[in-house]
């Protein structure tokens, strides 16, 4: 269960403070999937970054499975990211110096899995996302869609129980976006992880169990989709 209470985030911008997120509260049951939509600048990425611990909130609380995500030491945070958290970034953010395969196996390596085993697992995941042929290539040598698939594989390979995805289909063409979305949903379903996905495709969000619309840093609409 992901529980967010009175979450706020203010940024100092040219002397003035900008409120990117104000007083956001919601609860998401374990295994549920939440689609977050809203206009550009509404605070979607900010929300996701706060959930992932990439930024610290100005106020509020976040707990996941009764764990306070805001009160973790550096070590605990690293451990949480290694074991429980899968992050799929807006701009797929692959490491340029590493091959696609190495990028995908990175979370396992960081978590201490032996190289050989990590490589085998990564190969399986590349297969799952359908880009096994790109294993040895470097990020610059593969297409945007393939990069995004690699990023998904990297976000899920360590079987996290909380997956955060920031516009994973953001810079893909229509057909590709649809494929990647389906893929992410399916894989997430297999893992049984809680998913929070930011997207600007409202119809994607409607296909998830929950749908949140943000505007000016506040929840404008919260909807539970019954299937």
């Amino acid at each position: 269960m992901l529980k967010v209470q009175n979450l706020s985030k203010k940024f100092a911008q040219h002397g003035a403070t900008v409120s990117a997120l104000s007083d956001v509260s919601f609860e998401l049951p374990a295994g549920a999937s939440l689609g977050v939509t809203g206009e550009s600048g509404a605070g979607k990425s900010t929300l996701l970054n706060l959930l992932g611990g990439l930024e610290k909130p100005s106020a509020g609380q976040i707990t996941f499975n009764d764990r306070d995500l805001l009160r973790m030491t550096d070590q605990e945070e690293a451990k949480f990211r290694q074991q429980d958290l899968g992050f799929i970034f807006q701009f797929h953010q692959l490491l340029e110096d590493f091959s696609v395969l190495e990028n995908v196996m990175m979370p396992l390596l960081i978590g201490g899995t032996p190289r050989q085993q990590a490589e085998e697992t990564a190969q399986i995941w590349l297969d799952k996302v359908g880009i096994a042929h790109t294993a040895k290539r470097f990020p610059k040598e593969v297409s945007g869609g393939e990069q995004q698939r690699a990023a998904i594989a990297r976000g899920l390979i360590h079987r996290p129980c909380l997956v955060l995805a920031d516009e994973p289909t953001g810079n893909l063409d229509e057909g590709n976006a649809d494929h990647v979305f389906e893929l992410l949903c399916d894989l997430n379903h297999d893992l049984g992880a809680t998913l929070v996905m930011v997207t600007h495709h409202a119809d994607f969000a409607k296909r998830l169990t929950h749908h949140m619309v943000l505007r000016d840093g506040q929840i404008k609409n919260w909807q539970t989709n019954l299937k």
């Binding site: 992932g52 990439l54 550096d74 690293a78 290694q82 992050f87 490491l95 110096d97 979370p107 960081i110």
Partner: peptide
């Protein structure tokens, strides 16, 4: 920086 930050996000601690 970007890469190290990313590694940090993938779970590599600051000490790491």
């Amino acid at each position: 920086r970007r890469e190290f930050l990313l590694l940090n996000r993938l779970g590599l601690s600051k000490q790491g």
